[in-house]
């Protein structure tokens, strides 16, 4: 058996073991990225093989928790793709303003950069008080960090630039306080945010939303799993509700391609038709 075939077998066994023992199903995750994260964990635990990691994971829940963090963290930044947030101001906010109360789901919120960015936009647009954001992630540890709103001070220069590019109207530094090499964002920004654990792979719809934001999360899923999650989002959107994907994601390949109209093709903003 070739080395890569052996590794593929070990990966299958590991994912099965994780699923059967911990109930988390990563079998539909895109392989390259998943494999990289698994190998990073193997190295950091001082191990040598995927099978070795499997043994550790089955017998030590802490090792599994660390792998779960590896799987949930996607490196992002505040106001990533500033034009997306401009489009939210120009095209999404006017739609949201027609509702007496707005529910937003940020699916796969990871460490919270996007949640705080959106909360700032909603506050500046006068929508924060009648909006509830549900920020969910598969991983509780990541959610805890999200809730804290603590980010490295060295990123603030870039974030300020992108905040302004995204149509920001205030002084960005008014939104945070600096403590040494970190900043903490104004906790009232997330007063209307519910941070909750939710697994896109296995959990069902938990509310009806006017807007679902899921950018660069499904790129880590294979096509079949993407289809399944799109089904979940379709069910969870109100009629004419809006779905926001990452710039390089598309609904073209999914079973729901015909159920949405493009609100902004470049920004990957879609509106549920009926």
């Amino acid at each position: 058996m070739a080395r890569s075939d052996l590794e593929a077998l070990e990966l299958r066994l590991l994912l099965d073991a994780v699923y059967q023992h911990y109930g988390y199903d990563f079998r539909g995750y895109a392989r390259t990225s998943l494999k990289r994260r698994i190998w990073r964990r193997i190295m950091e635990e001082g191990l040598e093989t995927v099978s070795g990691l499997q043994e550790r994971i089955l017998h030590d829940p802490d090792v599994f928790e660390r792998l779960l963090v590896d799987f949930s963290i996607n490196v992002t930044s505040m106001f990533r793709d500033p034009t997306f947030f401009s489009a939210v101001r120009d095209k999404v906010v006017p739609v949201l303003k027609t509702y007496p109360f707005v529910r937003i789901w940020i699916a796969g919120c990871s460490t919270g950069e996007e949640t705080y960015s959106l909360a700032i936009v909603l506050r500046e647009e006068g929508l924060a008080d009648r909006t509830r954001i549900y920020a969910t992630d598969i991983n509780g540890e990541v959610l805890r960090r999200s809730k804290e709103g603590v980010f490295p001070v060295e990123r603030m220069k870039d974030y300020t630039r992108d905040y302004l590019k995204a149509g920001g109207r205030e002084s960005f530094s008014d939104y945070y306080k600096t403590y040494g090499d970190v900043v903490r964002f104004d906790p009232t920004l997330v007063d209307n945010v519910v941070f909750a654990q939710h697994n896109l792979v296995s959990d069902s719809s938990f509310n009806e939303f006017n807007l679902i934001v899921c950018r660069n999360v499904m790129i880590y899923f294979d096509r079949a799993l993407q289809d399944k999650v799109h089904e979940l989002f379709y069910e969870s959107l109100v009629r004419f509700g809006i779905l926001a994907l990452g710039h390089k994601e598309t609904i073209r390949f999914t079973g729901h391609a015909d159920d949405y109209a493009e609100l902004d093709s470049h920004e990957k903003l879609y509106r549920r038709l009926a």
């Binding site: 895109a30 392989r31 390259t32 990225s33 990289r36 994260r37 996607n74 490196v75 992002t76 990533r80 660069n216 790129i219 880590y220 710039h247 390089k248």
Partner: peptide, 21 residues
């Protein structure tokens, strides 16, 4: 490869990632 994404080849398709640089 789009700016600020990693580009992977998986089988006969591309996959993107925003894992760290």
């Amino acid at each position: 490869a789009p700016a600020d994404y990693h580009l992977f080849v998986e089988g006969g398709t591309f996959a993107l990632s925003t894992e760290g640089a």
